[in-house]
Computed example of a mutant assay.
Amino acid sequence: MAMNTPTKPTRPLLELIGLDKHYGPFQVLKNCSLNVNSGETVVIIGPSGSGKSTLLRCVNQLEPADGGDLFFEGKRVDFDKRNVHLLRRDIGMVFQNFELFAHLSVIENIMLAPIKVLGMSRADAHDLALELLGKVRIPEKADAYPDEISGGQQQRVAIARALAMKPKVMLYDEPTSALDPEMIREVVDVMADLSAEGMTSLVVTHEMGFARRAADRIVFMEAGEIIENASKTDFFGGAVNPRTRHFLDQILH
């Protein structure tokens, strides 16, 4: 009789274990632990100053953590800045304010990193950029410059630029906070499409419509701590602690 070989447990794609971060005497992250599985979309919410953006910046090593451990694909991340470029090849990040190069066209903004970092030919980078502009629904803006397109379109270019590095994880830091209300949905739709296609995503946002639509789990942070880590069903179904419930009531009403 054949024996069943036990399957080896799969580790999360991204593991944060007890991360701490100080700015001088102020502790902005306090023993933060979080796992993100491959293909999962995790939304982080919380009041201003709760440490949400700092947590993302520690994941992408824009800010070095002062304590704790970070694992990516089961391997401990060395906080040595000499090796940080290797991590950022696999972890894309989209910021609040687009960060596009004003002197480059839309397509050139997207082509730059694949050529400079990945060694891709201009022809291949051009083809990839056109493909990604189609994915973010603005292929007609390829030859425009950032100041010639709307904020929502600029943010979609920023998403396409991050995707051009073929990341395994996408980090979004309040990607709609600088947008006018009518432009928010076009960015949220693109993000939701990527989540539906299986892109692993860690998203700091107050857009509860996106959370309801695309999140697998929702994390609530307050005063540098992770207070809640719940499934979308539990979170919106009310199975959360009173501090989380109070914040949710405030932003929904």
Rank of each mutant, 00 (worst) to 15 (best):
A2T: 15
K8N: 09
P9D: 12
L16C: 11
L16T: 04
I17D: 11
L19T: 03
H22E: 05
P25N: 14
F26W: 05
F26A: 14
L29M: 03
L34Q: 08
L34K: 06
N35Q: 13
T41N: 06
V43Y: 10
I45Q: 06
P47Q: 12
P47F: 05
S50P: 03
G51S: 09
C58H: 03
V59C: 09
L62M: 13
P64M: 12
A65C: 05
D66C: 11
G68I: 07
F71N: 04
G74V: 11
K75S: 06
R76P: 00
D78K: 09
D80G: 02
H85I: 08
L86N: 15
L87E: 03
M93P: 13
V94A: 14
Q96L: 03
F98V: 01
F98C: 01
L100W: 00
L100H: 02
E108M: 05
E108Y: 07
E108I: 08
N109R: 01
A113S: 14
V117E: 07
G119Y: 06
M120W: 00
M120T: 11
S121I: 01
R122C: 01
A123N: 14
A123K: 15
D124V: 01
A125K: 07
A125L: 05
H126P: 02
A129T: 03
L133N: 05
L133A: 07
G134I: 02
V136A: 01
V136S: 04
R137F: 03
R137P: 02
P139G: 01
D147L: 05
Q154C: 09
Q154A: 11
Q155E: 06
R156P: 09
A162C: 11
L163M: 10
M165N: 10
K166I: 02
V169T: 14
M170T: 07
E174Q: 10
A178C: 01
D180E: 09
D180K: 10
P181A: 01
M183V: 03
V190D: 04
V190W: 05
A196V: 09
E197A: 11
G198L: 05
G198P: 04
V204P: 03
G209T: 01
G209P: 02
A211C: 09
A211L: 07
R213L: 08
R213I: 04
A214L: 08
A215R: 09
I218R: 02
E222S: 06
E222I: 00
E225I: 02
E225Y: 00
I226G: 11
S231Y: 06
S231D: 14
K232S: 15
K232L: 15
K232F: 07
K232V: 15
A239R: 15
P242F: 04
P242W: 00
P242N: 15
R245I: 00
L248Q: 13
